[in-house]
Design a protein around this nucleic acid. Structure first.
Lengths: 211, 211, 211, 211
DNA sequence: AATGAATGAGCCTTCATTCAT
DNA sequence: TATGAATGAAGGCTCATTCAT
């Protein structure tokens, strides 16, 4: 009774956060399997191994779960992390992501879910806000990346030119997500090569070091 | 009252086809407004100005309507019609399509619906088949188009190179669809320019006519 | 197939009205048995011998049923009909009503339900409106009745005096309703006599016909 | 930390009684606000500033709380305390009570709650018992009071006559409770005057003290 | 004694589908 | 063909109650 000092036992808040995460993960699984609209609370609660009622201790409604999931997805976006990377690496990363998805890795942002959420953003304002925010961030980081590379290469380009390049690259990548959802046997070799040429078009070759 | 010999009344098959179309158009309207999963039979029947019961004479289930709609959407795809067009015209066409969608034109294939159907194809085999078919067709026609242009330009390229180009262009266009759904105020000027540069990359400049 | 002229088959609107009434009657039964809050849609639909879903074709929500029931109850109030009656008859009527309730007559406005609705009117604005309206009507008709009798008797009384009498009589009657709910073996003989003396107090004895 | 010998700490029984009271008071607050059926254990526990679980140490079920509350309400009834008071004072007391309720005083027995409990007594035997007991007590004390006054005035009246008077006065007062629940802007001046005349009718004028 | 997380039965409501007319 | 009333199986959500700590 006295040495109940359970070291590293999670605080109540931490526990709550963990539960939320558990629910979101379960929701993700269900939504990917059944669709954003067909995934039911009952199935989510089964997947999360808790009672339906408990879910409502952590989320006030089903929609709140969807939003929570968006936030998660957004955080996991590859946008933020590309600063400083070479085009090769960025390409490799995206291909790696697609490959994992195609291989059935459940821990990777799900293209179909991204599509459904994008579609939903047309109708649901709350979701729209999240999508827009995520988009802005992604675009900004892409533009920053392209600008950096451009500067490093000694190139002088207008802001608009950068925007055009970002649009080309960004849409291509978005298109890959759409493709990944539709084409389970996407030919990744072709994808990689086409992305290489796009990168070549969009990113200036670095200045030769020597003469 | 009995001998109402309707002269030139459409054959029963034609009539059935017309009814089906009426239902599909109504379904389209509803699905765009409410989403592929939220559009209810009740609303569709209202929109089509017929009773819910009647719908089941032409479609055996709600899902059958969704499939019927896919078939329609597929036929309306812009893939088939690009043969012989110049890159400029193709670009203009796609931009025109996007512009109309952004302006709210209800007669244009709906990006959110395309996204939802693509997502749904992950789960529903029947839908998947349609999507795959449409994709194949679109890809084939894109490849044919690129090959034609290449040949006309006197270029000699491998089939794989063409595939790579088709992937670049195709994904870019798919990405535009995704963007259109998410970004109601997409900057079309940027889009057009970035598509121009992509076209330039993917399509060889035609041989000079004369010396 | 030809002589389908079902004479006196109810029109669609009439049918709807009948269904509504069927639901309201069932609701009444359930609410009296289980209470205004415990009576469930499931039980109502059983009692009305229809599916739960069907109820929602006629009432948009459970609360709408409660309100509908109020309207019914209000219409059945004895207020409106007392004009022209002698005190004796009014007394007899009210006693008759109580007796029938105590005897278990299910077609008589239910005191417990009246109490619950009165209580609910403290919290639910829509219900409050109905209650207030019914109250106003009842009070007005009581005042008119008392004024009439007073005039007939050749009495000259201020409006306020009438209000005071109406309050005395009205509260007494309301109190009877409360009593009826609480005391299943209410002594009706006592009730009648006490009501008689109240009437005597509140209503002037008519002028002697002769010298 | 261990030998916390709380001197003069209340006996466990006393403590239990205090806790019960705390719960009942909280329940009362909640039930008045939300209704007898809508007031949830969760809200009660919040209001009482204790955990939901703890409530079940003192009451075995929600219904037990309702019953406990009845007992409390009954004890607080004004019935017992009127012995020896003059009609004026009794009238004043009741009017005072109504005025406080209408003014929003939360410490006064709540008319809506009384109504709901009366209604509930039709269905719940345990509650019915309490209500009946309270009623009996109230009636008895009212009869005793009227008998006293009658005797003091030198009047000789049958027991039945007293019962009739008690019925008139009792129902009137009950009716006031109903009115108070329904009519937030009850005209207390009228109420008071009508109660005065009722008292005059029911209570004999005291004998002149001197010649 | 006390907490509050967890349970699960049950409620209101929706909607694809059927069927008598 | 056509109608639209009717069905009933879920689905989202609440809340009295329990129980590990």
């Amino acid at each position: 009774m006295n040495n109940k000092i359970k070291r590293s036992s999670p605080s109540s808040e931490q526990r709550a956060e963990l539960q939320k995460l558990r629910i979101l993960k379960a929701a993700r699984t269900c939504f990917i399997q059944d669709g954003l609209h067909a995934g039911t609370i009952a199935r989510i609660s089964e997947t999360a191994q808790m009672s339906p009622g408990l879910i409502y201790r952590y989320f006030s409604s089903r929609e709140e779960i969807v939003l929570g999931l968006m936030r998660l997805q957004v955080k996991a976006g590859f946008g933020p992390g590309i600063a400083g990377l070479t085009p090769k690496v960025v390409t490799a990363r995206i291909c790696e992501y697609l490959r994992r998805w195609l291989a059935g890795d459940p821990d990777v942002p799900s293209p179909p879910l991204i599509l459904e959420m994008s579609a939903e953003s047309t109708r649901n304002e709350a979701i729209a806000k999240h999508v827009v925010d995520a988009d802005k961030e992604a675009r900004a980081s892409l533009i920053a990346w392209l600008t950096d590379l451009s500067t490093q290469a000694g190139e002088t380009v207008s802001e608009k030119e950068i925007q055009i390049r970002a649009m080309a690259l960004g849409c291509f990548i978005d298109g890959l997500v759409l493709r990944a959802a539709r084409e389970p046997d996407l030919d990744m070799e072709i994808v990689e090569k086409s992305m290489d040429s796009l990168m070549a078009m969009v990113v200036p070759s670095p200045p030769r070091k020597a003469t």
